[in-house]
Design a protein around this nucleic acid. Structure first.
Lengths: 338, 338
DNA sequence: AGCTGGCACTCGAATGCGCCGAGTGCCAGG
DNA sequence: CCTGGCACTCGGCGCATTCGAGTGCCAGCT
């Protein structure tokens, strides 16, 4: 176990390095932090920390920088979550109020988060399967063509075109609409499959094919991989990462475009609380030198999706975590109101 | 007026520079192109082209590179549009078929265009105002809360929540829905404002307030600046731009995030044909060293939106223009089918 | 036992210098 | 009007040198 002072040295190294982006040496450390000991002592501590794998030297004879393991310890034991100041909280609220629909809420959230953290922001749309059904609408666009519209309690709207095997009358459609809604309205999407299982049975044989088609389209829309979407913003902040660009920035941009990858990373933990994945803890290779701070958000107590930021491992963790947490809370409020 | 040979020299310079990304000199030119004259002659021509402002030297005693004016001449007079090969056309079609809804069409188009051109792709969602109304749906979610859903012939769906000043019964709602649709279905969105102007007159006084609220929300949704959206992809290709990254890439990423800026640029010309804006021709400063190739697309003969790519001024114009045109055509087909 | 000052050493970054060569402009001759 | 020849320019590259922040280790002090 590391002594108290060594932990403080590690904390100081992380803080300085995050601030200056340059390897930090023993002398600079004692000058900028009142550790109460001389540089020589700090050097010994640093050597110990290096042995344990918490810090490393980029070159022989340069200062130390924290390793992923060092950041991990910092986040787990040494850093708190920096709460937002009152003006910041007001700004968040102002910025999010006045969104006209869910798309707008998500878009504003992304912009806000990117601005607050000066990093890349990622916001997942409220999951369908974890939301409840507000309404299912069926519209007849042509005799054998129906549009299916799903509306969730979080305001998300999803639509699909359905080509019916046979013409489907207005009255049958109204019938289906009514029965469907009476079964699923207010229920969780995840339960929909069972709820509609025997629905075709109540219809005329000639209509059953169409009903089945509509239902299967409905279920398809709920399949996990189709229903998850996300919005990304603040990519311009990537240019602040480092100066060795092509190598650093390229794979990150690529990973961000592969939304599937991000969704998987966000979904890896079901824990709705704050998650921090540091450097190589991210399965995806392109994100090996980035950290992801994410947290669940939702309209009620329950998390319906995640949001977070992607930044360099060398980031201001307390500040970022504070911003992410605060934004998630306000978004939850907004969703609950609508 | 420039002589025929000088134009050929310019063309050769553009082609070589686009290929190698390095300033091209007189000797290299005569070697790689059969111009039939000696380097010395080419030098004279180059001096003339430089006087006219078509090319420039980055430093004294380095080769020449085309200026924006040079690219302009190249695009207008010297370059054709390179048609897609048959396999490429098939690939486009395969990639776009199988999209399940409009979001999917747009998402696939962006990915496709980014891949084909290896540049940043931008696709504007079909404009509401330039589309026609397929259906307007009203859903009662609570006694005094209505959801308004607009569906266009291109498959775009837009929804808004409406808080009514007074409770609004199911029958009144059905009435409004029917009257509204009989007036606007099949008409162009742009004409909707006049078409619904006197609609509240036919309702009970107690309902008029609500009807007016619903209509004003409908009209709000059609306001130009609210209704335009776009999707961007392929930003990872920016890393291929040059090697002086922060300065080049940063403002471009910023401009891309400011969707308003891009929408303005795309909308600057109403011409549905292909538009190429080169370097400083783009009003936005961050895009001064990029070119934008865009073209209108639409389900019928009419263009409902634009799509295009953003790349370095030093891009393969014929190839890019070919890809953009081809993709626009296929997207138009897909939209017409749905 | 732990902390400190001193000291020799390392090595990357910055600086300066000289060479090389691609590319140019100009000119006289075909 | 084209061409070959020629003197000139100047950015890039390789190399040597210097500079200094930072280190590890050790002997001595508390």
């Amino acid at each position: 176990m590391l002594s108290e002072r060594r932990l403080q040295v590690l904390r100081a190294i992380v803080q300085d390095y995050v601030g200056t982006e340059e390897p930090v040496g023993s002398k600079a450390l004692t000058e900028r932090h009142s550790l109460g000991v001389s540089p020589a002592t700090v050097r010994n501590d640093m050597a110990a920390l290096e042995d344990e794998g918490y810090i490393a030297q980029p070159h022989t004879s340069a200062g130390r920088i924290p390793t992923d393991k060092g950041y991990r310890l910092f986040v787990d034991k040494l850093a708190g979550v920096k709460p937002m100041t009152a003006p910041e909280r007001r700004a968040i609220q102002n910025f999010l109020d006045g969104a006209v629909d869910l798309d707008d809420v998500v878009a504003r959230t992304v912009r806000l988060l990117a601005q607050l953290t000066r990093q890349v922001a990622v916001v997942q749309y409220p999951s369908l399967t974890r939301s409840t059904v507000r309404h299912v609408e069926l519209l007849s666009l042509a005799p054998a063509r129906v549009m299916l519209v799903l509306i969730t309690d979080t305001g998300r709207v999803e639509q699909r075109m359905v080509d019916c095997p046979a013409p489907f009358g207005e009255t049958s459609l109204a019938d289906l609409r009514a029965r469907l809604n009476s079964r699923v309205a207010g229920r969780r999407f995840a339960d929909v499959p069972q709820l509609v299982e025997d629905l075709p049975d109540g219809f005329d044989p000639e209509d059953r094919g169409t009903v089945a088609t509509v239902l299967s389209t409905l279920l398809e829309t709920l399949v996990e991989e189709n229903e998850e979407r996300l919005m990304i913003g603040g990519t311009a902040n990537l240019t602040r990462f480092g100066h060795d660009f092509p190598l650093t920035i390229r794979p990150v941009l690529e990973a961000l475009e592969e939304q599937v990858v991000l969704l998987k990373l966000l979904g890896e933990t079901q824990d709705p609380g704050m998650t921090v994945r540091i450097g190589h803890e991210n399965a995806h290779e392109g994100l090996n030198s980035t950290s992801i701070v994410s947290v669940g958000y939702g309209s009620g107590g329950e998390a319906v999706a995640k949001l977070g930021v992607v930044g360099p491992t060398r980031m201001d963790y307390p500040g970022t975590m504070g911003a992410v947490r605060a934004v998630a809370r306000y978004v939850g409020q907004i969703l609950a109101e609508s």
